[in-house]
Design a protein around this nucleic acid. Structure first.
Lengths: 344, 344
DNA sequence: TTGAAAGCGCTAACAC
DNA sequence: GTGTTAGCGCTTTCAA
């Protein structure tokens, strides 16, 4: 015996009204706490609600309600199971919760087509606003929805061909700091490994890397710059062959969490973790437990998520000032792997 | 200048109909791909849709549609940013995506009250079904909603005072296997550390631990059984004082991911990682990189999420067979930390 | 303080 | 093929 044999229909406001001997409008007043209802009537309505297990249909109300709010927002991230994405999600949920707003979330997997599909699915359900870590590199298609009154906040990566609010980290500065840190420890041959070249954050971090070489009078060598690794396995495959030669790198700057893990695995496998320096980007939960512990540049992910949500709700509250671009600083934490000096 | 200055109203099906010189019903036919529309009229409607940037309002359609489906499901987990929860989320999203269903997600933080709040918020938005990793220990309050036709799937933990579909792992077996593994390596003084005692999975794992002691003729000693650690910091605080005495444990069974990390930290801090054995529960992403590498009992989280989603959609497709309880096996992977023999 | 009527944007039922 | 009408469950407007 399952629930489906006992399937009943859900009760409506009209049924509550009939049972309570009141008008539907009076029930609406009670449900929405509008006041100005005779205490006795109020009680009759409440009893009917209990007896019928009445649950208001928010969707129906939204159709007629003047503010047109569904108390729902959408969140699009790279991959909901990536720790970076899920930390953003949690921070946003916590802000939304305070306003009785619930969150739709979806993964884009760096797929432009998927981005358009999912934004469309969210708009069809009339989300009040959207926070997006975009996969695509052209957001002009969102301008009509934006014009129709749905606020958009771009998170981690800025919009392209569209004006909108955004929250980003200091990716360039972080890449610069990571590379300078290695240079200060004596390295002049530093490999770079990163995600797909098309991703904004990676490009910024790489630019920071280049700038650090430049100000230190070290020639940029494309032979030790590797882009296109999206998983730790990718990174491992890429890095495992680059050591051993006379001009192998003495240090690595790994520009993203999974890539950093791949770099760690490679060094451990080759027994080089004590001789090749490594600075990673993004949080890694057990960075302090490894030997050596991993020196990382990290973002304040919670602050990023919170800022994005607050920006969105400010718009929903009616703020129509200029678009804002919030920049959240990154921090380098030395732990060991980044302080290894080159062995010649 | 922001989007809010240009705020326009959204166009409706009626407006599209007027512009195309067709009836609203014809537009509906075109939008929903019902066919039986004159090609020329079809084209006129499509043009009008483009020109007005018309986007159908799914919520409005749902109100009248006979199947009453919102193409939306809800997911409640312990904490959306916990890797276990977010892996479940991703597996569920992937199944839902194939059916054009999108997912609301929320964190319960082991809070019974929050569970009721969030289920209520989801039902108010008329989710088609709900997958829940419950925080509470009484789910009778869900029976009316279940009776009204919203399928419920309990994930990771079974329902209490309610009949419903569920998907759980072999927690008892996993706890038994972990403990037997340590016993086989010569340990007779094995500490247990786990999450809140009220959590079903932890209780099952602890029962497996007890059973392993029992079949091995080892007396249960409550002095080395610790429940109530919800974070790695909690676990560290609990464990840091238990070593050094003449009867200190020679091994630890850590019954959850954060707790395992706390145990690792403690052993490293005390320099005991090479002499005290450790078996953990749940996946830890860099378990293989630590020294020693960590022996873990893991669940197939993706299979758990997929099974739950498939069970839910089977119900939504009309299956009204008996409630199912799917059980997903756990696996112990020896990596080093669990194979340390006791030093006397 | 209460209620009747209209209508949100759409689909269902039934014409033609 | 195409259109008309009613109505999903609720809020709004306006009258009493």
């Amino acid at each position: 015996m399952t629930q489906f044999h006992t399937s009943r229909t859900r009760s409506t406001m009209r049924e509550v009204a009939e049972r309570a001997g009141a008008s539907i409008k009076t029930v609406s007043r009670v449900i929405n706490g509008e006041g100005n209802v005779n205490p006795e009537l109020f009680e009759r309505v409440m009893s009917a609600v209990k007896e019928l297990d009445y649950r208001p249909n928010l969707q129906a109300g939204f159709l007629r309600r003047s503010d047109g709010k569904t108390q729902t927002i959408g969140l699009l991230v790279e991959n909901i199971s990536n720790p970076f994405s899920s930390a953003l999600h949690r921070a946003i949920e916590d802000v939304a919760r305070q306003r009785n707003v619930i969150v739709f979330a979806g993964s884009l997997d760096e797929d432009t087509h998927r981005e358009q599909e999912l934004t469309s699915a969210f708009f069809a359900r009339r989300v009040d606003g959207l926070i997006i870590v975009p996969a695509g590199d052209d957001h002009a298609y969102l301008s009509k929805e934006q014009g129709a009154g749905t606020p958009l906040v771009f998170l981690d990566r800025p919009p392209v061909n569209l004006d909108a609010d955004s929250v980003v980290a200091t990716n360039f500065d972080g890449g610069f700091a990571a590379t300078m840190h290695l240079i200060k420890h004596g390295h002049r041959r530093i490999a770079y490994i990163g995600d797909y070249a098309t991703i904004y954050t990676g490009a910024q971090r790489l630019a920071g890397y280049k700038k650090a070489l430049e100000v230190s009078n070290i020639a940029y060598d494309a032979a030790i710059v590797f882009q296109g690794s999206h998983s730790s396995a990718d990174a491992q495959a890429t890095l495992s062959g680059i050591f051993g030669g006379s001009s192998s790198p003495t240090a690595i700057f790994a520009s993203q969490n999974f890539v950093t893990i791949g770099a760690i695995r490679t060094l451990h496998q080759l027994g080089l973790q004590g001789s090749v320096a490594l600075v990673g980007f993004d949080e890694i939960s057990e960075a302090d437990l490894l030997a050596p512990a991993i020196t990382l540049v990290t973002q304040n992910v919670t602050a990023m998520g919170e800022s994005a949500a607050e920006l969105l709700f400010k718009r929903l509250d009616g703020d129509d000032g200029d678009y804002e671009k919030k920049v959240i600083p990154t921090v380098l934490t030395p732990r060991g792997s980044g302080e290894i000096s080159p062995k010649y």
